[in-house]
Nucleic acid binder design. Structure first.
Length: 807
RNA sequence: GCCUGUGUGGCGGAAUUGGUAGACGCGCUGGACUCAAAAUCCAGUAUUAGCAAUAAUGUGUGGGUUCGAGUCCCACCACAGGCACCA
């Protein structure tokens, strides 16, 4: 057969379309549901990346196998199309971003069709569809109505040149990604979601998932739980504040306190401060510094003393000075710390710079040189408390408990948990996002829109320039902004901020379960049927945040009774990047970008798919190699040639039977264990074995086609049709028999003192005595043991023989 | 600094519980077919020595456990990614 992949691929893609082969029926009780999900892409202007092809093919292979195994497979696709690039493009070209998005989606979809992915296109949607974002807005209103959304003034990244608020990603390194200016902090009122309320639930929920261990760790680190004690500290002359510490055992070593310059405490104290000007200057200087500057000043522990206010150490009554220092963060813990320079390196550096006292309270280090920190003294069983009144002489763990107990009994301390994870900043000052359905009325304050008025559509205008003061471009569109208050009916203004990119992607997997529902975001019935996402794949870069946001969103919906499970994603795996042939990330500037369209044109989609699965460990990055790609083309050519070897026989021949059964078992196992590269090598081995035979049977040929079908669906369907079978997509996955997976004869190694000296042929069930005898007689082995004393002979069944000799 | 991952031929990478290291593919070398080329097929290909059988060395480095270590333990080095003053 001539391999006209263009014709073959088109033919089968049309066949699948016309027959609605991959459309999943919700509620089909005759089959077990199985939900395979891959992160839906942002349809950028540059088209599908070969990296997309890698993960989509992997999930496609799983989906195709599962279908043949009798599962009702849901493998959907859609578009995460809100975002800054489309907006930038719109500003430059004066067209509505939805036009650009429409074009890009068309391109992406065409490319995906050309690759033969078995997506259920009947469920396709874009996060930018009003029918979809209506429900994103509706869910925001649920957050609001349950007290989970609030407006707060917080510092944001501000680019003075672009006059725009930047996300942390766009402000990485303290410079604006677009223009390179230094990013400043600016106070702005933002919508927030109370994600921190869910810290503990998000941590615990991980036990109800099957995420890869490193994915779980990523979540755990991001949540950043730490357990410690919050202690009330009284001020001389009245008033008090609290500090949070994980090292209560060092409390006798306090020589000063440090409070955050951006925190609320210092504002409160201001009237009592004696050196107001100095303090104010420092607060302002901190505000001007970007996050990055603050980090860079790491070595330089800047700060000023807050004069006129002194604190009292609750354990010994001593008066202690208070300082401002920007190494203390206003939004973590209580925004104030007890400083123990003897046992905390940051405090040590601060004390050294500002000439403050250092008192050792735990023995074992040399605190004149550096702090003797928790990470060291906890591992030193010799360390004891010193200079700590009645606690002196105790071990660290004893003291921790005793001091905590004492302070808790006195009613001035509480054991608490703190989390690094903050509330979710949900506002973006951009045009191209879901409008936040809130209305501000002078009389009634913030009012939610009426649910029946949703969706709140983005207006059709031609200008998307940001405003001078950093408001969203929507603020310029007065006819859109001005509205009436849903409560009193008076004049009111709409919120002009939009939602972040993460919003639409936080629940899209629920929508796929019931994509066309006009009454609800998805019906409970449909969600109960599909139950959850069984297998979710995406890039490692999304495993922390996207996954956390999505889990938070789902847990909230669960709490208010709108989804059936607390966790709606069972297995989450991640894939490595496809790098350029020079082993660097593909980028236009480096000129190492491979366009999948070009590859499909020259080698066909099946070759590209097989190659991307073969290129390396799926979870690891792998460089592109056109030479290796050609090797995969040769493999497919070989599969085609093998058809001519089909003879008149039937069933599996004695020569091939074991290998076939083993191959079915391995392909099945590897496809669900992320070992796609060895799926390909297994099939190459099988094909090579067929090639060694004079002739093969139809059944043998067909089993190879079915096993290869998940990776190369077009050519295998074509060959399958040519030999007269019903389409593979309507067929049943072959079954292997465990008993037929083992060879009856095998060659095992014989070692002498652990070194391989020869091999022997044995029957699989050969008795140990006989194996031992064969091993000792083996020609080369005999040379090594001649005249030596044999200490023992270790026979590992079906694996190896090791002869231990002396002398 | 912390967390995570990775170090195996010329290259991408195999090696499911410790049991014949280098499967499979690429590349390379030689040969067949051809006027020639492409395609295809055959043989070889970790390193060193040898015509060969074979031997020695060999999975980032140094130790250890074991009859036996790429795999387990301890210490370290390099690279990649993420987080970064979190009290």
């Amino acid at each position: 057969m001539e391999y006209n992949f263009k014709k073959i691929e088109k033919k089968w893609q049309n066949f699948w379309d016309e027959n609605h082969t991959f459309e999943a029926k919700t509620g089909d009780k005759s089959k077990e549901p199985y939900y395979v999900l891959v992160e839906f892409p942002y349809p950028s202007g540059s088209g599908l990346h070969v990296g997309h092809v890698r993960s989509y093919t992997a999930q496609d292979a799983i989906a195709r196998m599962k279908r043949m195994q009798g599962f009702n497979v849901l493998y959907p696709m859609g578009w995460d199309a809100f975002g800054a690039p489309a907006e930038q493009y719109a500003i430059k070209n004066h067209i509505h971003p939805k036009e650009a998005v429409k074009e890009n989606i068309k391109t992406f979809k065409g490319q995906m069709k050309n690759l033969g992915f078995s997506f259920d296109w009947s469920r396709e949607f874009s996060t930018t569809d009003p029918e979809y974002y209506k429900w994103t807005q509706w869910q925001f209103l649920q957050f609001y109505k349950h007290g989970m959304a609030y407006k707060d003034t917080i510092p944001v990244n501000w680019c003075p040149t672009c006059k725009s608020v930047l996300s942390n990603e766009d402000a990485a390194g303290g410079v604006c990604e677009r223009c390179g200016s230094s990013v400043l902090q600016k106070e702005k009122a933002q919508w927030m979601l109370r994600m921190s309320d869910y810290s503990e639930d998000l941590l615990k929920g991980l036990d109800d998932t099957n995420f890869a261990e490193k994915v779980k760790l990523g979540q755990i680190n991001w949540i950043g739980k730490s357990t410690g004690v919050e202690v009330d500290i009284s001020l001389v002359g009245g008033g008090k504040f609290s500090i949070f510490t994980t090292c209560i055992e060092t409390i006798y070593g306090i020589t000063f306190f440090v409070v955050a310059p951006d925190g609320k405490l210092i504002k409160e104290w201001m009237p009592r401060v004696e050196n107001k000007e100095e303090v104010q200057t420092y607060i302002e200087a901190t505000a001007k510094k970007s996050n990055m500057d603050r980090t860079e000043l790491n070595k330089d522990k800047s700060g000023v003393e807050v004069k006129g206010i002194k604190a009292i150490n609750p354990v010994n009554g001593s008066e202690v000075p208070i300082y401002l220092g920007d190494f203390v963060l206003g939004d973590y813990g209580t925004g104030a710390v007890m400083a123990v320079p003897s046992h905390d390196q940051r405090d040590f550096e601060y004390a050294t710079k500002h000439h403050l006292e250092i008192i050792e309270v735990i023995s074992g280090g040399d605190v004149s040189k550096q702090a003797y920190e928790k990470k060291d003294y906890l591992h030193n069983p010799e360390s004891r408390l010193v200079a700590s009144a009645e606690f002196s002489g105790m071990s660290v763990m004893e003291a921790k408990k005793a001091i905590t107990k004492e302070l808790v009994n006195r009613g001035i301390a509480r054991e608490v948990n703190n989390y690094k994870m903050r509330d979710w900043i949900f506002s973006r000052q951009r045009f191209w996002g879901e409008p936040i359905p809130m209305i501000h009325c002078e009389k009634c304050g913030w009012q939610p829109m009426k649910e029946e008025d949703l969706p709140l559509l983005l207006p059709d205008v031609a200008e998307y320039e940001p405003t001078e003061n950093g408001e969203s471009p929507l603020a310029n569109i007065t006819e859109w902004v001005n509205t009436t208050c849903p409560s009193c009916g008076g004049a009111a203004k709409r919120e002009t901020d939009t939602m972040p990119n993460w919003a639409g992607s936080s629940w899209y997997f629920l929508r796929f379960m019931d994509a066309h529902n006009k009454e609800e975001f998805a019906s409970m019935e449909a969600m109960k049927y599909w139950n959850r996402v069984d297998w979710y794949n995406g890039g490692m870069e999304h495993t922390a945040r996207h996954l956390l946001y999505a889990r938070f969103w789902v847990q909230f919906l669960y709490k208010i009774g709108l989804v059936p499970n607390k966790e709606m994603i069972w297995t989450r795996v991640s894939h490595g990047m496809v790098l350029g042939s020079n082993n660097e990330k593909m980028s236009k500037s480096k000129g190492n970008v491979i366009n999948p369209d070009d590859v499909i044109k020259e080698y066909g989609a099946d070759t590209l798919r097989v190659y991307e699965m073969f290129m390396g460990d799926y979870q690891q990055d792998a460089p592109w190699s056109t030479d290796s790609l050609k090797g995969c083309k040769r493999f497919i050519d070989k599969i085609i040639r093998l058809k001519d070897k089909i003879g008149t026989g039937s069933g599996y021949s004695r020569e091939l039977e074991t290998l076939i059964h083993k191959s079915i078992k391995k392909v099945e196992y590897d496809l669900t264990h992320l070992a796609f590269n060895t799926v390909v090598s297994t099939l190459m081995i099988l094909a090579n074995a067929y090639d060694d035979q004079k002739e093969i049977t139809k059944e043998e040929y067909r089993v190879l086609l079915i096993l290869l079908n998940p990776l190369a669906p077009h050519v295998t369907e074509e060959l399958n049709e040519l030999i007269g079978y019903e389409p593979i997509c309507k067929s049943v996955w072959p079954k292997y028999e465990e008993s037929k997976c083992v060879e009856t004869e095998l060659a095992i190694g014989v070692q002498v003192n652990g070194k391989l000296r020869g091999t022997i042929q044995i029957r699989v069930d050969e008795e140990e005595v006989s194996v031992k005898e064969k091993a000792l007689k083996q020609e080369n082995v005999a040379k090594f043991i001649e005249g030596k004393e044999i200490v023992k002979v270790i026979v590992v069944p079906k694996k190896i023989v090791n002869i231990v000799i002396k002398g």
